[in-house]
Write a protein that binds this DNA or RNA. Structure first.
Lengths: 221, 221
DNA sequence: ACGATTTTGTTCTCACGTTCACAAACTCCT
DNA sequence: AGGAGTTTGTGAACGTGAGAACAAAATCGT
């Protein structure tokens, strides 16, 4: 029993690229471009055009053969598919250096997210203002999550505190977590975690850099 | 003509996990654990033990059957494979909110990297101190890269400036770039780019969150 | 010394993701 | 109206990655 447009099974790899396409479309729209081919959009998104077309085909047939894609229309369709046509409320926990940067990051509000609270467990920080928001105490978490129906939390604490914060977020009803702390979080079934680790990315670069150096040596010898 | 230990072809997916294993090993060592099984390490790293063993087998046979892995020994072997036994000099360009956070991030120095310069093109920022470093003007880039043999650069500028900064980094001799600006960078052959996009990660979470909400509705109806 | 037990390293199979290549479908021009 | 030229959407081939399952090799107890 499959529905005509199987909005069910979009591959994970495709989901991860949809936001890139969305950003590329916004950029094209800003430049006043109303229609684009898969080749144009693929270039703007930094991918192969066949992959782009296959990715878009999972959402439906939003292009016109011989013409291309209407930028505004496709932009809306992808935004709808991702779910960023309405704003998602988000809480950020841990307002150190990184938390500050995240709180001030304009890319959230412009892309479907709204920061509803900055939380920290250090009483020396609560009450401080970051931009136009005040830092509140972590104990306010449960009330905020319940009041604003928050589903997404960002962890920007030190590693040692991350698992405790995570457990508390989950208990409060958060079901999606973006983790910047360099540690593995364990969460119950049904909760999604994505991690961003700055030093891991650098280490991957270092590996390839080392390989380049080895090859240069090998080639010169 | 394959060398006995083919250090040549480590799969990209494995390379991306090695830093996670390394972190897990450091954590085990800190807790005074001298030996661990693949199961222990896999749990600490948040992966399946079969996958872990297969990943490690690409590096060589560093375990002992019936016993497990020596934590210190394996830690060194992975660090050597990644190339983080010596420090890699790194420059950070764009010292806004995020650049500040990166400059203060202790995880770099403790994991094989050394920040040698903070650069910004805004004269209002140059000269300011961040931690124990001064912000220098972007025009000093070429001299710094040449003097310190810098191969890795971090871009933390606004999106509109990122491609220009990137071109200049490449021209100065940088061959690995970590890009935090929300834009696609084009680079010549031989230069590696990895990107970290905070809002993309959130959008992926939003997609899954929306799906959960749809399923709950569908299940309740 | 030898069998029981543990745990690694590897093989095999399956699923997923990428890319090619082409038919279907649309526009434009005559 | 009809053919030439474009560009999408998709089927098929290929490559990579994940996980189960097992043989090889080490320890331990008797």
């Amino acid at each position: 029993m499959t529905s005509p447009r199987a909005t069910a099974g979009i591959p994970e790899a495709t989901v991860a690229r949809l936001p890139v396409y969305l950003r590329a479309l916004v950029s094209l729209a800003d430049r006043g471009i109303g229609t684009c081919s898969s080749e144009d959009l693929a270039t703007a998104a930094g991918v192969n055009s066949a992959k782009l077309r296959k990715d878009l085909s999972y959402l439906g047939s939003y292009g016109t053969r011989g013409v291309g894609y209407d930028v505004e229309y496709l932009r809306y369709q992808i935004a709808r598919e991702i779910g960023v046509t309405n704003d998602w409320p988000v809480v950020i926990v841990g307002i150190g250096n990184l938390g500050h940067a995240l709180a001030n990051y304009s890319g959230f509000s412009s892309r479907g997210f709204r920061i509803v609270a900055l939380l920290d467990s250090d009483p020396g920080r609560t009450g401080d203002a970051v931009g136009d928001m005040d830092i509140r105490h972590f104990d306010d978490l449960e009330a905020i999550v319940a009041d604003d129906h928050v589903a997404i939390g960002v962890i920007a604490t030190p590693a040692f505190a991350a698992q405790d914060v995570c457990d508390r977020l989950v208990a409060a009803g958060i079901t999606s977590i973006l983790n910047f702390a360099p540690t593995v979080l364990s969460v119950p079934e049904g909760v999604d975690v994505r991690k961003v680790d700055l030093s891991i990315e650098l280490q991957i670069l270092a590996y390839h850099e080392q390989r380049k150096a080895m090859n240069d040596e090998g080639g010169a010898a």
